[in-house]
Design a protein around this nucleic acid. Structure first.
Length: 376
RNA sequence: GGAUGGGUAUGCCUAGCGGCGAGGGCAGCGGACUGUAAAUCCGCCACACAGAAACACCGCAGGUUCGAGUCCUGCCCCAUCCA
Protein backbone atom coordinates (compact mmCIF):
# COMPACT_ATOMS: atom_id res chain seq x y z
CA UNK A 1 0.00 0.00 0.00
CA UNK A 2 1.09 3.50 -0.71
CA UNK A 3 -0.47 6.58 0.88
CA UNK A 4 0.42 9.66 -1.09
CA UNK A 5 -0.50 13.00 0.44
CA UNK A 6 -1.29 15.30 -2.47
CA UNK A 7 -2.46 18.43 -0.77
CA UNK A 8 -3.25 19.83 2.64
CA UNK A 9 -5.45 22.69 3.71
CA UNK A 10 -5.29 23.23 7.43
CA UNK A 11 -5.74 19.74 8.79
CA UNK A 12 -7.75 18.62 5.77
CA UNK A 13 -5.95 16.05 3.63
CA UNK A 14 -6.23 15.25 -0.06
CA UNK A 15 -4.48 11.96 -0.81
CA UNK A 16 -4.47 8.84 -2.87
CA UNK A 17 -4.13 5.33 -1.59
CA UNK A 18 -2.79 2.62 -3.85
CA UNK A 19 -3.91 -0.93 -3.15
CA UNK A 20 -3.79 -4.24 -4.96
CA UNK A 21 -7.34 -3.56 -6.11
CA UNK A 22 -6.71 -0.08 -7.42
CA UNK A 23 -6.14 3.46 -6.30
CA UNK A 24 -8.49 5.28 -3.96
CA UNK A 25 -8.78 9.03 -4.19
CA UNK A 26 -9.45 10.54 -0.78
CA UNK A 27 -11.41 11.93 0.92
CA UNK A 28 -13.67 9.04 -0.02
CA UNK A 29 -17.11 7.82 0.94
CA UNK A 30 -17.36 4.03 0.97
CA UNK A 31 -20.71 2.60 -0.09
CA UNK A 32 -22.11 0.21 2.49
CA UNK A 33 -23.15 -3.25 1.33
CA UNK A 34 -23.20 -5.14 4.62
CA UNK A 35 -24.07 -8.55 3.23
CA UNK A 36 -22.18 -8.05 -0.04
CA UNK A 37 -25.10 -6.12 -1.45
CA UNK A 38 -26.14 -2.50 -1.28
CA UNK A 39 -29.66 -2.79 0.09
CA UNK A 40 -32.24 -1.49 -2.33
CA UNK A 41 -31.44 -3.71 -5.31
CA UNK A 42 -28.29 -1.81 -6.26
CA UNK A 43 -25.77 -3.92 -8.17
CA UNK A 44 -22.01 -3.57 -8.42
CA UNK A 45 -22.57 -2.54 -12.05
CA UNK A 46 -24.66 0.33 -10.66
CA UNK A 47 -21.83 1.24 -8.29
CA UNK A 48 -19.51 1.70 -11.24
CA UNK A 49 -22.04 4.00 -12.85
CA UNK A 50 -22.47 6.21 -9.79
CA UNK A 51 -18.78 6.64 -9.08
CA UNK A 52 -18.21 4.32 -6.12
CA UNK A 53 -14.56 3.82 -5.26
CA UNK A 54 -14.76 1.45 -2.30
CA UNK A 55 -17.45 -1.00 -1.29
CA UNK A 56 -17.86 -1.98 2.35
CA UNK A 57 -19.06 -5.33 3.65
CA UNK A 58 -19.33 -6.93 7.04
CA UNK A 59 -17.42 -9.79 8.65
CA UNK A 60 -20.06 -10.87 11.14
CA UNK A 61 -22.92 -10.82 8.66
CA UNK A 62 -21.08 -12.68 5.91
CA UNK A 63 -19.77 -15.21 8.42
CA UNK A 64 -23.29 -15.91 9.67
CA UNK A 65 -24.65 -16.04 6.14
CA UNK A 66 -23.49 -17.32 3.63
CA UNK A 67 -20.20 -18.15 5.33
CA UNK A 68 -16.68 -16.94 4.66
CA UNK A 69 -15.46 -20.47 3.86
CA UNK A 70 -18.00 -20.67 1.05
CA UNK A 71 -17.01 -17.27 -0.28
CA UNK A 72 -13.35 -18.27 -0.16
CA UNK A 73 -14.14 -21.39 -2.22
CA UNK A 74 -15.83 -19.11 -4.74
CA UNK A 75 -12.69 -17.02 -5.08
CA UNK A 76 -13.21 -14.36 -2.43
CA UNK A 77 -15.54 -11.43 -2.08
CA UNK A 78 -14.40 -9.55 -5.18
CA UNK A 79 -15.15 -12.41 -7.50
CA UNK A 80 -18.25 -13.42 -5.53
CA UNK A 81 -19.97 -10.07 -5.91
CA UNK A 82 -18.33 -9.15 -9.22
CA UNK A 83 -16.57 -6.03 -7.97
CA UNK A 84 -12.91 -5.54 -8.77
CA UNK A 85 -12.25 -2.28 -6.96
CA UNK A 86 -11.28 -1.99 -3.31
CA UNK A 87 -13.44 -3.54 -0.59
CA UNK A 88 -13.22 -2.75 3.09
CA UNK A 89 -14.63 -5.27 5.54
CA UNK A 90 -15.76 -4.17 8.95
CA UNK A 91 -14.62 -6.56 11.62
CA UNK A 92 -17.78 -7.35 13.56
CA UNK A 93 -16.83 -4.83 16.21
CA UNK A 94 -19.88 -2.73 15.46
CA UNK A 95 -22.11 -5.75 16.05
CA UNK A 96 -20.72 -5.86 19.60
CA UNK A 97 -22.60 -2.56 19.88
CA UNK A 98 -25.62 -3.05 17.62
CA UNK A 99 -26.33 -6.62 18.77
CA UNK A 100 -25.58 -5.82 22.42
CA UNK A 101 -28.56 -7.85 23.60
CA UNK A 102 -27.29 -10.96 21.82
CA UNK A 103 -23.68 -11.20 22.98
CA UNK A 104 -21.31 -11.56 25.94
CA UNK A 105 -17.84 -10.03 25.92
CA UNK A 106 -14.90 -11.95 27.38
CA UNK A 107 -11.16 -11.37 27.22
CA UNK A 108 -10.78 -13.96 24.49
CA UNK A 109 -13.51 -12.43 22.33
CA UNK A 110 -17.27 -12.11 21.96
CA UNK A 111 -19.89 -14.83 22.19
CA UNK A 112 -22.82 -13.92 19.96
CA UNK A 113 -26.17 -15.57 19.63
CA UNK A 114 -26.83 -15.35 15.91
CA UNK A 115 -29.51 -12.78 15.11
CA UNK A 116 -30.75 -15.23 12.45
CA UNK A 117 -31.27 -18.44 14.38
CA UNK A 118 -29.80 -17.86 17.82
CA UNK A 119 -26.94 -20.32 17.45
CA UNK A 120 -23.73 -19.58 19.31
CA UNK A 121 -21.02 -17.79 17.36
CA UNK A 122 -17.66 -17.01 18.86
CA UNK A 123 -15.68 -14.18 17.37
CA UNK A 124 -12.39 -13.00 18.75
CA UNK A 125 -9.57 -11.07 17.04
CA UNK A 126 -8.16 -14.18 15.39
CA UNK A 127 -11.56 -15.36 14.13
CA UNK A 128 -12.35 -11.93 12.70
CA UNK A 129 -8.99 -11.83 10.89
CA UNK A 130 -9.44 -15.34 9.52
CA UNK A 131 -12.92 -14.53 8.24
CA UNK A 132 -11.71 -11.33 6.62
CA UNK A 133 -8.76 -13.18 5.12
CA UNK A 134 -11.18 -15.71 3.65
CA UNK A 135 -13.27 -12.88 2.26
CA UNK A 136 -10.02 -11.45 0.88
CA UNK A 137 -11.09 -7.85 1.19
CA UNK A 138 -8.65 -5.09 0.38
CA UNK A 139 -8.77 -3.61 3.85
CA UNK A 140 -9.58 -5.53 7.02
CA UNK A 141 -10.66 -3.72 10.15
CA UNK A 142 -9.33 -4.70 13.56
CA UNK A 143 -11.78 -6.44 15.85
CA UNK A 144 -12.77 -3.94 18.52
CA UNK A 145 -15.50 -3.17 20.97
CA UNK A 146 -17.60 -0.17 20.09
CA UNK A 147 -18.96 1.04 23.43
CA UNK A 148 -21.93 3.42 23.56
CA UNK A 149 -20.77 7.02 23.84
CA UNK A 150 -22.60 7.40 27.14
CA UNK A 151 -20.75 4.45 28.69
CA UNK A 152 -19.15 5.21 32.06
CA UNK A 153 -15.54 6.19 32.17
CA UNK A 154 -14.33 3.13 34.10
CA UNK A 155 -16.01 0.82 31.65
CA UNK A 156 -14.62 2.69 28.62
CA UNK A 157 -11.10 2.63 30.10
CA UNK A 158 -11.19 -1.14 30.56
CA UNK A 159 -12.87 -1.67 27.21
CA UNK A 160 -10.22 0.37 25.37
CA UNK A 161 -7.41 -1.53 27.09
CA UNK A 162 -8.96 -4.79 25.94
CA UNK A 163 -9.44 -3.41 22.41
CA UNK A 164 -5.72 -2.62 22.38
CA UNK A 165 -4.86 -6.17 23.39
CA UNK A 166 -7.19 -7.41 20.70
CA UNK A 167 -5.48 -5.16 18.16
CA UNK A 168 -2.11 -6.75 18.91
CA UNK A 169 -3.67 -10.17 18.38
CA UNK A 170 -5.27 -8.96 15.13
CA UNK A 171 -1.94 -7.72 13.86
CA UNK A 172 -0.16 -10.97 14.68
CA UNK A 173 -2.87 -13.11 13.12
CA UNK A 174 -3.02 -10.96 9.99
CA UNK A 175 0.75 -11.20 9.59
CA UNK A 176 0.51 -14.98 9.84
CA UNK A 177 -2.45 -15.28 7.47
CA UNK A 178 -0.79 -13.11 4.82
CA UNK A 179 2.08 -15.61 4.57
CA UNK A 180 -0.07 -18.72 4.10
CA UNK A 181 -0.04 -20.35 0.67
CA UNK A 182 -3.79 -20.54 0.23
CA UNK A 183 -4.49 -16.98 1.30
CA UNK A 184 -6.24 -15.20 -1.58
CA UNK A 185 -5.08 -11.67 -0.80
CA UNK A 186 -1.65 -11.83 0.77
CA UNK A 187 -1.47 -8.05 0.81
CA UNK A 188 -4.59 -7.54 2.86
CA UNK A 189 -4.32 -4.31 4.81
CA UNK A 190 -5.15 -3.85 8.46
CA UNK A 191 -6.63 -0.71 9.97
CA UNK A 192 -6.65 -0.22 13.73
CA UNK A 193 -9.51 1.49 15.53
CA UNK A 194 -9.33 4.22 18.11
CA UNK A 195 -11.89 4.13 20.90
CA UNK A 196 -12.55 6.02 24.13
CA UNK A 197 -16.11 7.27 23.84
CA UNK A 198 -16.27 11.00 24.65
CA UNK A 199 -13.28 10.99 27.01
CA UNK A 200 -10.55 12.96 25.25
CA UNK A 201 -7.70 11.79 27.44
CA UNK A 202 -8.58 8.11 26.89
CA UNK A 203 -8.91 8.77 23.16
CA UNK A 204 -5.54 10.53 22.99
CA UNK A 205 -3.75 7.93 25.05
CA UNK A 206 -5.21 5.19 22.84
CA UNK A 207 -4.38 7.05 19.63
CA UNK A 208 -0.76 7.38 20.69
CA UNK A 209 -0.60 3.74 21.65
CA UNK A 210 -1.99 2.34 18.39
CA UNK A 211 -0.02 4.80 16.25
CA UNK A 212 3.13 3.05 17.44
CA UNK A 213 1.90 -0.24 16.00
CA UNK A 214 2.64 0.56 12.35
CA UNK A 215 -0.73 -0.37 10.91
CA UNK A 216 -1.87 0.41 7.38
CA UNK A 217 -4.49 2.89 8.48
CA UNK A 218 -6.27 4.24 11.53
CA UNK A 219 -9.94 4.58 12.22
CA UNK A 220 -11.84 6.58 14.77
CA UNK A 221 -14.66 4.36 15.95
CA UNK A 222 -17.33 4.68 18.58
CA UNK A 223 -18.65 8.02 17.34
CA UNK A 224 -22.18 8.84 16.21
CA UNK A 225 -23.42 6.34 18.75
CA UNK A 226 -25.36 8.66 21.02
CA UNK A 227 -23.24 11.77 21.58
CA UNK A 228 -23.97 15.22 20.11
CA UNK A 229 -22.40 16.51 16.90
CA UNK A 230 -20.41 19.01 18.95
CA UNK A 231 -19.00 16.23 21.12
CA UNK A 232 -18.10 14.25 18.01
CA UNK A 233 -16.32 17.22 16.41
CA UNK A 234 -14.54 17.92 19.66
CA UNK A 235 -13.27 14.34 19.87
CA UNK A 236 -11.99 14.61 16.28
CA UNK A 237 -10.26 17.90 17.12
CA UNK A 238 -8.55 16.25 20.06
CA UNK A 239 -7.79 12.82 18.63
CA UNK A 240 -6.96 13.00 14.93
CA UNK A 241 -3.72 14.99 15.51
CA UNK A 242 -2.35 11.98 17.39
CA UNK A 243 -2.93 9.59 14.48
CA UNK A 244 -0.26 9.27 11.74
CA UNK A 245 -0.70 11.88 9.01
CA UNK A 246 0.97 9.65 6.43
CA UNK A 247 -1.68 6.96 6.78
CA UNK A 248 -5.40 6.89 5.98
CA UNK A 249 -7.70 8.21 8.71
CA UNK A 250 -11.14 6.66 8.71
CA UNK A 251 -14.13 7.97 10.65
CA UNK A 252 -16.34 4.92 10.98
CA UNK A 253 -20.06 5.04 10.35
CA UNK A 254 -20.24 8.80 9.75
CA UNK A 255 -22.39 10.36 8.60
CA UNK A 256 -24.53 13.20 7.33
CA UNK A 257 -23.12 15.40 4.53
CA UNK A 258 -22.46 18.08 7.16
CA UNK A 259 -20.69 15.56 9.43
CA UNK A 260 -18.43 14.60 6.53
CA UNK A 261 -17.55 18.20 5.68
CA UNK A 262 -16.70 18.90 9.30
CA UNK A 263 -14.63 15.72 9.57
CA UNK A 264 -12.71 16.34 6.35
CA UNK A 265 -11.76 19.70 7.78
CA UNK A 266 -10.43 17.84 10.83
CA UNK A 267 -8.22 15.52 8.79
CA UNK A 268 -10.39 12.48 8.03
CA UNK A 269 -10.12 10.83 4.62
CA UNK A 270 -12.29 7.69 4.75
CA UNK A 271 -15.99 7.59 5.55
CA UNK A 272 -18.90 5.21 5.43
CA UNK A 273 -22.49 5.43 6.54
CA UNK A 274 -25.78 3.64 5.99
CA UNK A 275 -27.61 6.95 5.67
CA UNK A 276 -27.68 7.32 1.88
CA UNK A 277 -28.92 3.78 1.34
CA UNK A 278 -31.26 3.50 4.31
CA UNK A 279 -32.67 6.99 3.89
CA UNK A 280 -33.10 6.27 0.21
CA UNK A 281 -35.12 3.15 0.95
CA UNK A 282 -37.22 5.25 3.31
CA UNK A 283 -37.87 7.91 0.67
CA UNK A 284 -35.55 10.57 2.13
CA UNK A 285 -33.49 12.11 -0.63
CA UNK A 286 -30.43 14.32 -0.38
CA UNK A 287 -30.36 17.49 -2.44
CA UNK A 288 -28.24 20.62 -2.45
CA UNK A 289 -31.17 22.36 -0.81
CA UNK A 290 -31.58 19.91 2.05
CA UNK A 291 -33.24 16.57 2.47
CA UNK A 292 -36.69 15.87 1.06
CA UNK A 293 -39.16 13.15 2.04
CA UNK A 294 -40.73 11.88 -1.16
CA UNK A 295 -43.54 10.23 0.80
CA UNK A 296 -44.89 13.69 1.62
CA UNK A 297 -48.08 14.48 -0.24
CA UNK A 298 -46.69 17.78 -1.54
CA UNK A 299 -44.70 15.81 -4.14
CA UNK A 300 -47.74 14.08 -5.62
CA UNK A 301 -47.80 16.39 -8.63
CA UNK A 302 -44.13 17.36 -8.62
CA UNK A 303 -42.87 16.67 -12.12
CA UNK A 304 -39.30 17.80 -11.45
CA UNK A 305 -36.38 15.43 -10.87
CA UNK A 306 -35.23 14.92 -7.28
CA UNK A 307 -32.55 17.50 -8.00
CA UNK A 308 -32.53 19.82 -10.97
CA UNK A 309 -29.36 19.26 -13.00
CA UNK A 310 -28.31 16.09 -11.14
CA UNK A 311 -26.53 13.65 -13.46
CA UNK A 312 -27.47 10.49 -11.57
CA UNK A 313 -29.32 7.73 -13.45
CA UNK A 314 -32.48 8.52 -11.50
CA UNK A 315 -32.61 12.27 -12.04
CA UNK A 316 -31.71 12.03 -15.71
CA UNK A 317 -34.97 10.22 -16.34
CA UNK A 318 -37.57 10.20 -13.58
CA UNK A 319 -39.74 12.70 -11.75
CA UNK A 320 -40.40 13.09 -8.03
CA UNK A 321 -44.07 12.30 -8.66
CA UNK A 322 -43.25 9.03 -10.41
CA UNK A 323 -40.75 7.93 -7.78
CA UNK A 324 -43.25 8.86 -5.05
CA UNK A 325 -45.81 6.70 -6.80
CA UNK A 326 -43.35 3.79 -6.88
CA UNK A 327 -42.57 4.20 -3.19
CA UNK A 328 -46.24 4.38 -2.24
CA UNK A 329 -46.94 1.32 -4.38
CA UNK A 330 -44.05 -0.45 -2.65
CA UNK A 331 -42.43 -1.16 -5.98
CA UNK A 332 -38.80 -2.15 -5.56
CA UNK A 333 -37.82 0.22 -8.34
CA UNK A 334 -38.79 3.17 -6.12
CA UNK A 335 -36.25 2.28 -3.45
CA UNK A 336 -33.63 1.44 -6.02
CA UNK A 337 -33.93 4.81 -7.76
CA UNK A 338 -33.77 6.62 -4.43
CA UNK A 339 -30.71 4.73 -3.20
CA UNK A 340 -28.95 5.34 -6.52
CA UNK A 341 -29.60 9.06 -6.24
CA UNK A 342 -28.42 9.28 -2.64
CA UNK A 343 -25.23 7.31 -3.23
CA UNK A 344 -24.54 9.42 -6.29
CA UNK A 345 -25.11 12.54 -4.18
CA UNK A 346 -22.57 11.37 -1.58
CA UNK A 347 -20.03 10.18 -4.15
CA UNK A 348 -20.36 13.43 -6.06
CA UNK A 349 -19.98 15.50 -2.91
CA UNK A 350 -16.72 13.67 -2.22
CA UNK A 351 -15.52 14.48 -5.75
CA UNK A 352 -16.37 18.14 -5.12
CA UNK A 353 -14.48 18.00 -1.82
CA UNK A 354 -11.40 16.57 -3.54
CA UNK A 355 -11.62 19.15 -6.30
CA UNK A 356 -11.93 21.91 -3.72
CA UNK A 357 -8.91 20.59 -1.83
CA UNK A 358 -6.92 20.35 -5.06
CA UNK A 359 -7.78 23.97 -5.74
CA UNK A 360 -7.01 25.00 -2.18
CA UNK A 361 -10.58 26.17 -1.74
CA UNK A 362 -12.00 23.64 0.65
CA UNK A 363 -12.95 26.15 3.33
CA UNK A 364 -15.00 28.17 0.87
CA UNK A 365 -16.56 25.07 -0.65
CA UNK A 366 -17.53 23.74 2.76
CA UNK A 367 -19.21 26.98 3.76
CA UNK A 368 -21.11 27.21 0.47
CA UNK A 369 -22.24 23.57 0.67
CA UNK A 370 -23.41 23.83 4.26
CA UNK A 371 -25.25 27.08 3.53
CA UNK A 372 -27.21 25.76 0.58
CA UNK A 373 -28.01 22.39 2.20
CA UNK A 374 -29.50 24.09 5.23
CA UNK A 375 -31.88 25.86 2.83
CA UNK A 376 -34.75 23.54 3.72
C1' G B 1 -92.37 -13.59 -2.03
C1' G B 2 -89.01 -17.24 0.82
C1' A B 3 -84.14 -18.89 3.05
C1' U B 4 -79.44 -17.70 4.94
C1' G B 5 -75.59 -14.39 6.27
C1' G B 6 -74.50 -9.41 7.13
C1' G B 7 -74.75 -3.80 8.36
C1' U B 8 -69.01 -1.48 13.95
C1' A B 9 -66.46 5.28 13.94
C1' U B 10 -64.79 11.37 8.11
C1' G B 11 -62.38 5.74 3.14
C1' C B 12 -62.06 0.14 3.07
C1' C B 13 -61.90 -4.67 5.81
C1' U B 14 -62.58 -6.79 10.46
C1' A B 15 -62.68 -8.23 16.34
C1' G B 16 -66.60 -8.09 19.60
C1' C B 17 -71.18 -13.02 22.27
C1' G B 18 -74.23 -8.33 28.94
C1' G B 19 -69.52 -3.82 32.09
C1' C B 20 -67.12 -0.65 25.48
C1' G B 21 -65.33 6.32 26.71
C1' A B 22 -65.38 -0.23 21.12
C1' G B 23 -59.67 -3.85 19.69
C1' G B 24 -56.93 -4.85 15.05
C1' G B 25 -55.44 -4.43 9.85
C1' C B 26 -55.33 -1.65 5.19
C1' A B 27 -55.39 3.09 3.02
C1' G B 28 -54.11 8.21 4.40
C1' C B 29 -50.93 11.97 7.10
C1' G B 30 -46.34 13.10 9.70
C1' G B 31 -41.69 11.78 12.06
C1' A B 32 -37.23 8.90 13.23
C1' C B 33 -32.95 6.36 11.31
C1' U B 34 -24.95 7.61 11.55
C1' G B 35 -18.69 0.95 11.08
C1' U B 36 -27.35 -1.93 8.64
C1' A B 37 -31.24 -7.59 13.21
C1' A B 38 -34.18 -1.56 9.45
C1' A B 39 -38.27 -2.09 1.89
C1' U B 40 -37.92 -0.92 9.31
C1' C B 41 -39.69 1.54 13.56
C1' C B 42 -42.74 5.39 16.04
C1' G B 43 -46.80 8.86 16.24
C1' C B 44 -51.70 10.72 14.32
C1' C B 45 -56.05 8.72 12.17
C1' A B 46 -65.06 11.04 14.19
C1' C B 47 -66.04 15.52 17.08
C1' A B 48 -66.31 17.76 21.60
C1' C B 49 -65.77 17.77 26.69
C1' A B 50 -62.96 15.98 30.58
C1' G B 51 -59.36 14.28 33.72
C1' A B 52 -64.27 11.99 39.10
C1' A B 53 -65.95 14.04 34.70
C1' A B 54 -68.00 12.94 30.09
C1' C B 55 -73.81 9.70 26.95
C1' A B 56 -70.00 10.77 21.67
C1' C B 57 -75.35 8.25 15.20
C1' C B 58 -71.84 0.47 16.71
C1' G B 59 -78.29 0.58 10.06
C1' C B 60 -83.18 2.87 12.39
C1' A B 61 -87.00 2.73 16.21
C1' G B 62 -88.77 0.55 20.45
C1' G B 63 -88.13 -3.08 24.56
C1' U B 64 -85.62 -6.27 28.53
C1' U B 65 -81.67 -5.03 32.14
C1' C B 66 -78.34 -1.72 37.48
C1' G B 67 -75.87 -1.80 32.66
C1' A B 68 -77.06 -3.26 25.45
C1' G B 69 -72.44 -2.97 19.87
C1' U B 70 -73.75 -7.58 22.31
C1' C B 71 -80.39 -10.17 24.22
C1' C B 72 -85.83 -9.43 22.30
C1' U B 73 -89.49 -7.11 18.67
C1' G B 74 -90.47 -4.35 14.32
C1' C B 75 -88.58 -1.82 10.24
C1' C B 76 -84.71 -0.33 6.51
C1' C B 77 -80.53 -1.64 3.59
C1' C B 78 -76.67 -5.14 1.44
C1' A B 79 -74.96 -10.07 -0.29
C1' U B 80 -75.89 -15.02 -1.84
C1' C B 81 -79.29 -18.79 -2.94
C1' C B 82 -84.46 -20.51 -4.00
C1' A B 83 -89.15 -19.34 -6.35
Amino acid sequence: MEYKLLKQEGRAKRAQVTTVHGTIQTPVFMNVGTVAAIKGAVSTADLEEIGTQVELSNTYHLHVRTGDETIKKLGGLHRFMAWNKPILTDSGGFQVFSLAGLRRIKEEGVYFNSHIDGRKIFMGPEESMRIQSNLASTIAMAFDECPPSKAERDYVQKSVERTTRWLERCKNEMKRLNTLDDTINKEQLLFGINQGAVYSDIRIEHAKRISEMDLDGYAVGGLAVGETHEEMYHILDETVPYLPKDKPTYLMGVGTPANILEAVERGVDFFDCVYPSRNGRHGHLYTNHGKINLFNSKYELDDRPIEEGCQCPTCKRYSRAYIRHLLKAKEMLGMRLCVLHNLYFYNTMMTEIRDALDAGEFAAYKKRKLDCMSGE
